[in-house]
Design a protein around this nucleic acid. Sequence first.
RNA 1: GGGUAGGUAGUCAAGUGGCCAACGACAACAGACUGUAAAUCUGUCCUCUUCGGAGUUCGAUGGUUCGAAUCCAUCCCUGCCCA
Length: 379
Amino acid sequence: MAALQFELEAGCPHSAARAGKITTDHGEVLTPIFMPVGTAGSVKTVPQEQLEQEVQARIILGNTYHLYLRPGLEVLEGAGGLHRFMGWDRPILTDSGGYQVFSLSGTRKIREEGVIFQSHIDGSRHLFSPEKVMDIQRIIGADIIMAFDECPPYPSEYAYAEKSMHLTHRWLDRCFTHFNNTEDKYGYTQNLFPIVQGSVFSDLRKESCAYVSGKEAAGNAIGGLSVGEPEQQLYDICEACCTDLPVQKPRYLMGVGTPWNILECIGRGVDMFDCVMPTRNGRNAMLFTSKGVINIDNKKWEKDYSPIDDGIDSAWSHYYSKAYLRHLVKSKEVLGLTIASVHNLAFYLQLVREARAHILQGDFVSWKNEQVGILQTRL
RNA sequence: GGGUAGGUAGUCAAGUGGCCAACGACAACAGACUGUAAAUCUGUCCUCUUCGGAGUUCGAUGGUUCGAAUCCAUCCCUGCCCA
């Protein structure tokens, strides 16, 4: 059993895009990769079987905060970790709860020690410290675990962003110390990724990248983006961070994004992505297809009996028609949620596979530039 | 035939003299959603609009009144009960 390895296979002549291979004790992941979000131990509405077969997911996310509250650590530990609990033997990455510091801002207090959360389920109070979050992620047993950070909102004042970043850095030290003082629980190796913060301020981002790089972690993450800033700013900061983070380690851009965001950021050197968009927006009737974006709820699809997307290498995407999926969505049939989610995820995974193929064959940039236009089209 | 309850916008359904173009729900139509408190949320939803308003509505017709979806008369229709 060994720590995560990252092998760079190819770069790209006209961009920072690269193709690589991550090796974990639960198998290999070819990059660039998109990781479906399975917050509470489930990629919402999608069975593990479809995740493997139709979606071809290689690695998925879980969330520390949600799994800690429910089912709780006893259940997870009793199961032998999240992989066994949910029946998924490919890699898993857990987010630390840092994002919940941001999204549950109404029910938490940030202190030097950590964050006092109020459970969104029953209102009970819990302290999340860097040490506690490491312990929880040890028990959940993800292959990649994330440092506990604060994700500041957009917009943030410079002074706040700076203060927040430094807190995240101090927490990062504590995360690594505690992580290194604790052991893998289930016989395979866990890897801790630090997270760059600094809001939209380039000097803060630079400082944060340097701090994070100093940890010489198996991989590095860029956090605090796609929280409302303009797209160009996302790209610019992403580019700057990729420049300042180690070349030989995978770069993970947290929470991004739309298909075109992903292509643009692959072009800037990102290797790993995750986002709720394919699943959440799918459940809310938004489909990403090889020809553009569809709101399947719209009347225009009522009698469109053509496949959801025959350009996608997923049986479900050509087996079911737009008209049928629209009917399911309008009727609130639960199958509609699953079909939409499976399709969107299959689309995202195919997108990153194609990006990889174009990086390897050397024409990524021209392909990307064409795709970015097509994918944003509103059908 | 007699009695009785009722007929309100696509549907259900409030309103029973002015604060009513008319509560609410549903349906319909459109939008939002980026490390998931989201199978959620928002908007529109009689017609026209230069978004300030303007014009037609509450089974039909006639009437009372400064003013009616709301009161009165007649008629039409529906449910239930009795013959």
